[in-house]
């Protein structure tokens, strides 16, 4: 089955949504989505790494012997993550501080290595870039949505813009709320994904 490039990009939104349908990369998903803007930044950071690592890995895959492909891929992914870290520290220090530990943890995000293994090493550079873009956008969309829901319920604001006075339901900003929101959104997305089939 071959997909067009557009299909490669859009499949990440619902059908192969990395968070709600593939259920990959749960650790940053739960931890960084305390607000919409944090979730979106984390998603975009992962998108950046995913596109570049997918392209680099698809380019070198034919030359890497099977025995060492995982170490080679991890080195490539770690390089892009570190590059991203330097860039964020230099140009968006405030955002770097908020996301902190979760930027270096993109290295071990299963979405990134997962796409390298499942897609990039069997496809061309262009196709892999589209796949990275699609999955990355899907991830960004999911994290922003999750962050938005938690921010609305938890603090009564959207992207930092407050529409109620006082507090929301604080539990939603903390870990239990993350699991609750994730569960309900997962139900919703799986329903949508089934319908689309």
């Amino acid at each position: 089955m071959t997909m067009t490039k557009l299909q490669l990009i859009t499949k990440g939104f619902i059908k192969d949504n990395p968070t709600f349908v593939l259920v990959l990369g749960m650790c940053p998903t739960l931890a960084t989505t305390t607000s919409a803007i944090n979730g979106m930044s984390m998603g975009l950071a992962t998108l950046f790494v995913l596109v570049l690592s997918n392209m680099a890995i698809s380019a070198v895959a034919p030359y890497v012997p099977d025995k060492v492909h995982i170490p080679a891929y991890i080195v490539i992914i770690a390089t892009f993550v570190t590059v991203l870290q330097f860039l964020m520290q230099a140009y968006t220090p405030a955002m770097y501080e908020t996301l902190g530990l979760f930027i270096p943890l993109i290295v071990v995000n299963c979405i990134v290595l997962g796409r390298a293994e499942a897609f990039a090493n069997k496809h061309t550079v262009i196709e892999s870039a589209c796949d990275g873009l699609g999955i990355g956008l899907g991830f960004t969309l999911s994290l922003t949505l999750l962050g938005m829901v938690r921010e609305i319920l938890g603090t009564g604001s959207v992207f930092g813009w407050k529409f109620i006075t006082g507090d929301g339901i604080l539990a939603f900003v903390m870990a239990p709320g993350a699991f609750l929101c994730l569960g309900y959104l997962m139900v919703l997305f799986n329903k949508l994904a089934k319908k689309n089939k």
Partner: peptide, 17 residues
Amino acid sequence: CLFTVCLACSSVLAAVY
């Protein structure tokens, strides 16, 4: 192969740094 990959990656990192 691993050596080449590491060498290329570390050069990129050094440049960005």
